[in-house]
């Protein structure tokens, strides 16, 4: 369903973020992308929805070649790819309902969205999703009044309101405590199963990845160094991905997930918007 071939990304500074990525993701599969900070995980999923422009290579979603799209074509393609972010990326000063409904922006015209006059089915679906993630009572709260776990739930509802075929998840648990992290991962897993979504999850926490993913892909310095089932992931392979470390100390808790530094170049709003403009 999603096919990446020969995808390469080089930043203007000359840093190679991704080299020749070959990846195929069938429908309904939950794939975890692991690797050290700076391995290119975030860049990879941002290349898929073109928040980052890949330097070369092809990315196909079903029959659409994503790399060549621009303007309204790109907008249409982005609607079918929901994205969940590390720091939730909610708009703090909008209410929960407005945040969730923003998932429909690709479907409604400007004035409708400006006046917040969304179609009835969109509102009903948004409310159903909020019930599904357990926040129906919070519709009128402002996003910054919620806890971390609650915000991530709103982020999930927003992504799902796009009725996506593909879910791109960037470090969903990096800012959450261990218990909330597991709840969020379980929720994502269940929702993907319900809707048969193909999913790419960037994640630092190897244990969580092994528990909740169907398939694990290891990335190191912009190259795929492992691709297999979770139970195939051995200490040797972890060493190839992350480098030398004693992986076999079960009583020691997994490392605190550290935040991946995100380079400014890629978060440049102008870039994100330039690609989102109708010509």
């Amino acid at each position: 369903m999603l096919t990446l071939s020969g995808v390469t990304k080089r930043y203007p500074t000359g840093d190679r973020a991704l080299t020749d990525i070959e990846l195929t993701l069938p429908k309904g599969q939950v794939m975890a992308l692991i690797g050290p900070s700076g391995a290119g995980k975030s860049t990879l999923i941002r290349c898929v929805n073109r928040l980052v422009e890949p330097t070369s290579g092809s990315i196909r979603l079903d029959d659409t070649e994503l790399t060549r799209l621009s303007g309204s074509g790109l907008r249409k393609a982005r609607r079918s790819m929901g994205m969940i972010f590390q720091e939730y990326a909610l708009v703090d000063r909008l209410t929960v309902m407005e945040n969730v409904l923003s998932g429909r922006l690709g479907y409604v015209g400007f004035w409708r969205s400006f006046l917040r006059r969304y179609p009835e089915d969109a509102v009903a679906e948004a409310f159903r999703l909020l019930e599904r993630v357990g926040l129906p009572h919070a519709i009128d709260k402002r996003a910054d009044a919620l806890s971390g776990g609650q915000r991530q739930r709103v982020g999930i509802a927003r992504a799902l309101l796009q009725s996506p075929k593909l879910l791109l998840v960037d470090e969903p648990t990096a800012s959450l405590d261990p218990k909330t992290s597991r709840q969020i991962m379980r929720l994502i897993r269940e929702l993907c199963a319900e809707r048969e979504l193909a999913t790419i999850i960037n994640i630092h926490d190897v244990a969580l990845a092994q528990q909740f993913a169907d398939r694990i892909v290891g990335l190191r310095a912009g190259q795929i160094v492992f691709d297999g089932r979770p139970d195939e992931l051995t200490s040797d392979i972890l060493t190839t991905i992350y480098g030398e470390e004693d992986w076999d100390t079960s009583p020691e808790p997994a490392d605190e997930p550290e935040r991946e530094p995100v380079s400014y170049e890629r978060r440049d709003i102008a870039g994100a918007m330039a690609t989102g403009v109708a010509p």
Binding site: F85, F110, A272
Partner: peptide
């Protein structure tokens, strides 16, 4: 920049962003 990125990822137009 992150909320802006998130809104553009939904397929919103420039004005909507």
């Amino acid at each position: 920049p992150t909320p802006v990125e998130a809104i553009s990822a939904t397929g919103a137009s420039r004005l909507q962003i």
